[in-house]
Design a protein around this nucleic acid. Structure first.
Lengths: 339, 339
DNA sequence: ATGAAAGCGCTAACAG
DNA sequence: CTGTTAGCGCTTTCAT
């Protein structure tokens, strides 16, 4: 029982395949009766058009590719949910790719997407990516690309991000207002724009409040809890006694949270801690983690909208939109000293 | 600058497309010199075969589809990593689908996989799925399917799972040995086999140790922390005072963990808690969460191996392998009363 | 209103 | 050794 094709229908009905094709697409120049018969048989035979044949013919697929560093990061999972939300409604299927923060994997994913005639792609850069040629050449050929979160300044296309600077500034300011005098920052990988912007927000806040910036307590970690745990241990056993930590992401903050607890220090009394993203888990930690909320779902929606727009109106090529979403402080126990 | 095709090469070299095709696949019956020239030009023109055309021709794609309920669940993310590990090495690309625990989505995903001529699929069932016809018909047509974790007894194909009964039994036994007298269980959705098997393990352990089974303290939750939090609150405010909880998954346990803390109860003294899976986060909680380790990565590897085997040897159709992996107790602070 | 033919990119008989 | 032909499933001129 193999798949029904347009040919089967044509044979059965003693018409040509083109007639069937036209009837199926409801062409105006088809006899009402013929159309009826075709539609009926198609239904009965459970006919569905072959997407691969369509792809070969038309060079598109109704699929859009999404590349994220790591699907297990709830932030990306939420963004993807947002993407699926609008893509789905518009009849697109979203295909998920992971770069595992690895440049080669990212290149492979990009190639796969282009080869399979995906209609466009959404990407959040891998940590390891320093060279953007794989995007550049596609983009120059007019292939629709939209960056989100870990965006790329070198390519002139639509982008969606949050105001990392502002979020980081507010987080740091909050710690200051809670009475912290020696605030450390655990940054993300320096080649990511979001890491640098958050670091910048941290520095600016200290500057504005006339708090000396100490390079010794500005550390850097990958965006995962395991490494952050190690880095924070190192921070805590250093010569400078800190009483506040702003972590560049919740995953980092979770590692710091564990390190602080392990060291027998109390939050927020000994050390006030704040992260960035507002992952679902943060509210369930003990003590609950303060953080900067990022509208992840909304980010996915926006990115998908921009992409689909790009797909449907390739001429809009010239004006690149950068949508910067707002963050919001979420204060929980880990940083709340003053009620 | 569009993609180079085999035709471009043929024209340039004044040979036929079939010659080029053969040269590219290194056919034995091609003049060494011609072969050389073709290969060189192909290289220079950056030729890559069009996978869509290949798919249309050969009815396969070198892609395998993976359907999981939710990519943000670190357990599935790890399984996928295992799948990618072996698939990659064998030249397959893995395409990820989410069912969001929704039956309709699962059906759509299955259809997408079949239509796009994926070579096979790996699936962990959606909670909502009660009807398996969408798998059955494909399976009957000889389409390679392997189930993992949330497996399906109704379809006779390869399966990879862990010994849920044994893991649950050991977890419960551990609580008993820690002196717990009134042990609650927060189960997963009852229509999932894994939920039932874990529940069964729990019951058997109580039975063996002659501890009365109280239906009032056997609750059920979706496999996520948010709902588990609510359910556990309800459990704690019930009339029966429990001193131990075995949660059917770590995500559930994380919700329970928060509820217990919130209620001002101490772990493990007031209530000893143990989960199931050994997600990376569990070790970072405060107190750290005891759990049953599941070899997620290994599960992915095994499932992928079975699938690829199925793809390459379709005749092996008849003998269905069920690979049951072993679990292991991971005891941390949340349940360790006796040092 | 419908059919015949060409073609998307590629491979595989079948001929030479 | 290499070219010709046909065809995977479908749409789309171009005829009729």
């Amino acid at each position: 029982m193999k798949k029904t094709t347009i040919k089967d229908i044509a044979r059965e009905l003693n018409v040509s395949t083109s007639t069937v094709s036209r009837a199926l697409r409801d062409s105006y120049e088809i006899g009402a009766e013929t159309k009826q018969r075709v539609l009926e048989l198609a239904q009965r035979l459970d006919y569905t058009p072959d997407p691969v044949a369509l792809s070969l013919l038309s060079s598109h697929s109704n699929d859009i590719g999404v590349i994220v560093p790591d699907i297990s990061n709830p932030f990306f999972a939420l963004v993807i949910a947002g993407i699926e939300d609008v893509a789905f409604a518009q009849g697109y299927h979203v295909v998920i790719y992971q770069s595992h923060d690895n440049y080669e994997r990212e290149v492979m994913n990009v190639r796969h997407i282009a080869n399979r005639r995906k209609d466009g792609m959404l990407v959040s850069l891998a940590t390891g990516t320093q060279d953007y040629a794989h995007f550049k050449s596609l983009h120059d050929q007019g292939f629709p690309i939209v960056f989100f979160d870990r965006i790329c300044d070198e390519i002139d296309t639509h982008k969606v991000s949050v105001d990392d600077f502002e979020g980081a500034y507010q987080a740091t300011e909050h710690l200051i207002k809670q009475g912290c005098k020696t605030i450390a920052h655990i940054s993300g990988p320096p080649n990511l724009l979001i890491s640098r912007r958050r670091l910048h927000g941290y520095r600016s806040a200290l500057l504005d409040y006339k708090i000396p910036i100490m390079e010794d307590i500005i550390m850097s970690s990958e965006y995962n809890s395991q490494e952050a745990l190690v880095i924070t241990r190192r921070l805590l056993s250093g010569s400078v006694k800190v009483d506040g930590i702003f972590a560049s992401s919740d995953n980092i903050a979770i590692g710091s949270h564990a390190a602080i607890t392990e060291a027998g220090l109390s939050m927020p009394h000994d050390i006030a801690l704040i992260g960035f993203s507002d992952l679902p888990i943060t509210g369930l930690l003990n003590p609950a983690l303060s953080t900067v909320a990022q509208p992840a779902f909304e980010m996915g929606r926006s990115a998908a909208e921009l992409l689909i727009n790009l797909i449907k109106n390739p001429k809009n090529d010239r004006i690149s939109i950068s949508n910067v979403l707002r963050t919001g402080l979420v204060i929980r126990e880990s940083s709340l000293r003053i009620q």
